[in-house]
Design a protein around this nucleic acid. Structure first.
Lengths: 336, 336
DNA sequence: TTGTATGCGTTATCAC
DNA sequence: GTGATAACGCATACAA
């Protein structure tokens, strides 16, 4: 160990008066090492401030000890979505206690497609958590090809061969829509999420099913993009086509915020003229005027579960039989 | 190259009928390789789908080809700050075109301090971008000790030996405060950012200096934490102590949002009773009611500059003489 | 339980 | 311009 360079396993071994292999074993779990040797190595490690060289370890173990969090979201607006925050928090907490690195893979502005898929397929990470997947990104096929352990946060589109964890979006939108129905609304519309994302699709399904079951029409549908601005614009279109609307289900709180703004600017009182229910409960619902009635989406828990599944996969654990689906619940506000 | 395992440099060399050394040279810049050899190697690489093994390369080059983005923010609320979004975007765009990995280092909930400092000092990354640094994190000392190339987004506290890029916070808050003064406000207060962050400190300085220059008192100060909730609470305290306030400078738009909410709940009209100016212009300002007058904070540009500086450091470029300071500007809204 | 020997895939050195 | 060959730091099969 020359001055200035980091201590190596050899330095530790020398310091502890054992062989390199014994030092290695002591450091990695302590299997087949005498208590004395273990103590000597531990002491040497502490004294030298030794940290294993990740590259060298990777080279022989053929693992990188890092996982990727993929957010293939091309829209800058989307990044401000508290959803990403929750995902970040979930993954971060999920790998706490492990020595896994988190490599963040965001879509770059104006970049050619395929970079992320290529990266994932190139063995740079041991596994991946995929959030906010759009159908057009075609990550699923690439993932299938590369055999990289991966878990989706939110149901993927294609063959159900991918692992995923999700919130029950159909049930959530059912809760939201049912609330409007029970409140007495009879002309109910919805501002949907993107229809190339499973969350957007599922929440529209729940909406339609609930209204059908209640014997109410469900043709008042405007598509949003999970942003506040997009939600406001969708609400404007909705009101133009259906001026008599008395209830709106917005498929995300961010969009609901835009809906409230549009309603306000058109002089509609909430909830008296038009009742509104959102979806997510990730912080914005408490800050709207009036406070938003919404459906709680346990993003952090969902993402932590996804991370746990991925860790299991990496450890060679038996494959879970079915995806974990988390249950949403209604959160009282003043808007419906 | 056995089936299922990734192709190695040896495979490429064999396929191209050259030695491993030549293949390596051809792949890394093509210095001292004949055009024929280069072409043969390129073809082989394409045919095999070869990607260099990062661990092996790291081991010999002693570089990891990855940089860390450090957000030592313990408060969950803070993560939702659009500031982080901008930083993320800036770093991501800043390393576009390189093959650098982005390793995200977030503070974990309830974690013992020092993990991030240890990680940075352990040679796992080639460099680091530090955002949202609080004084108590003591990253600066650790960074100085480890000699890890690092660039702060936002001025650090201690010795000025660290590289950093910043927005001119003093000038920004001067613009904001001056706007209130010119509008006719005479009893002006501020909701500050955390006083253990340079942005929080500097914005308070600009506020005080401007009022002093205008011959106005500046004792109406309440400390916030850069969150909407904290801003609202600070505004409440401010109004309790100074009921006659006719202008408030909030040191961030998120806090300004809380300020507006508090003013609304107390029946104060904005801007007629109390004018409000924020700071950041990262998306929330356009969505408040009324639309917020604020100061544009070029976070993405700032962070991209920080990333560029770091890349220069890694490339052994001459150290920039002085930190880059970006200039903020006022953005018209309806609140002041 | 311990140590010896080997190889992981790459770049760098140095003869040719 | 090219190709052997030696590290880089670590984990592990195998012998002791």
């Amino acid at each position: 160990m020359t001055l200035g360079s980091a201590p190596t396993l050899d330095d530790v071994a020398r310091e502890a008066n054992v062989s390199r292999s014994t030092a290695s074993r002591a450091i990695n779990g302590g299997d087949r090492v005498s208590p004395e040797a273990q103590a000597a190595v531990d002491a040497a490690v502490a004294r030298l401030g030794y940290t294993p060289n990740r590259a060298a370890r990777s080279l022989v173990t053929r693992r990188t000890d890092s996982i990727a969090l993929v957010v293939p979201e091309p829209d800058t607006m989307m990044l401000t979505d508290p959803f990403l925050t929750g995902v970040l928090r979930g993954v971060t907490d999920g790998i706490a206690g492990t020595d896994l690195q988190l490599v963040l893979l965001l879509n770059r502005v104006d970049e050619a497609p395929g970079r992320i898929a290529r990266y994932l397929g190139s063995g740079h990470v041991d596994g991946a958590i995929i959030a906010s997947a759009h159908e057009r990104h075609q990550l699923e096929a690439a993932l299938t090809r590369s055999h990289l352990p991966a878990v989706f946060v939110g149901r993927p589109f294609g063959e159900m061969s991918h692992h995923f964890v999700d919130v029950d979006n159909v049930e959530g939108s059912r809760l939201a829509t049912q609330r409007l129905v029970e409140r007495g609304c009879r002309r109910i519309g919805t501002v949907t999420g993107p229809q190339d994302m499973s969350a957007g699709i599922d929440r529209l399904h729940g909406f339609r099913e609930t209204l059908a079951a209640a014997g109410l029409p469900s043709e008042a549908v405007a598509h949003g993009d999970f942003t506040a601005v997009g939600g406001g614009e969708a609400a404007a279109r909705l009101l133009d086509e259906h001026p008599d609307l008395d209830g709106i289900f917005a498929a995300s709180d961010l969009m609901a915020e835009g809906v409230l703004r549009t309603l306000h600017s058109r002089g509609k009182r909430v909830p008296d003229d038009v009742a509104v229910v959102g979806f997510d409960d990730l912080g914005v619902a408490q800050h709207t005027t009036p406070r938003l009635t919404t459906v709680h989406n346990p993003v952090v828990a969902t993402t932590m579960a996804a991370t746990a599944t991925l860790l299991g996969l990496l450890a060679g654990a038996p494959v879970p039989a079915a995806p974990q689906i988390f249950t949403p619940y209604l959160v009282e506000g003043e808007s419906a």
